[in-house]
């Protein structure tokens, strides 16, 4: 079974977050590389913790995603989740305008 981590959106901010579980204590990080990954039975604990966070109105709609382990840490295995993890793949307009001014 593939290695998975739990992800969700933070209720207040709406931002993407990943679940870390240290000694049974859950917390949510924006950095997928810091997420706690698991398979099978470990995943069950992650699932419970994620659902608990949802019940406590900390996050919205948690779900598990497949990740790959690389030298730089975990990366999501689908394009969608990679974009979710690292943000839009295009330059945001503010930056784009600045860059085009510089070039001109």
């Amino acid at each position: 079974m593939a290695l998975q981590v739990y992800t969700a959106s933070l209720l207040k901010e709406g931002l993407v977050a990943y679940l870390t579980l240290e000694n049974g204590n859950p917390s949510w990080t924006p950095d997928i590389r810091l997420a706690t990954a698991g398979t099978d039975s470990e995943l069950e604990a992650l699932k419970l913790a994620a659902e608990q966070s949802e019940l406590e109105n900390h996050v919205v709609a948690p779900y598990a995603i497949d990740v790959l382990e690389t030298e730089a840490g975990y990366i999501a295995s689908t394009k969608r989740e990679q974009i979710r993890a690292s943000g839009p793949t295009i330059r945001l307009p503010q930056d784009a305008v600045r860059a085009s001014r510089k070039a001109a």
């Binding site: 931002l15 993407v16 979710r84």
Partner: peptide
């Protein structure tokens, strides 16, 4: 009510959507 937990996400969703607020890939 949502932040306090008095409204579930399912119920709040109907309300926020009536106000143009989606939960998207990265943020609201």
């Amino acid at each position: 009510r949502r932040l306090k937990g008095d409204l579930s996400e399912e119920e709040f969703k109907h309300q926020r959507l009536r106000n143009g607020l989606y939960l998207q890939l990265h943020a609201y």
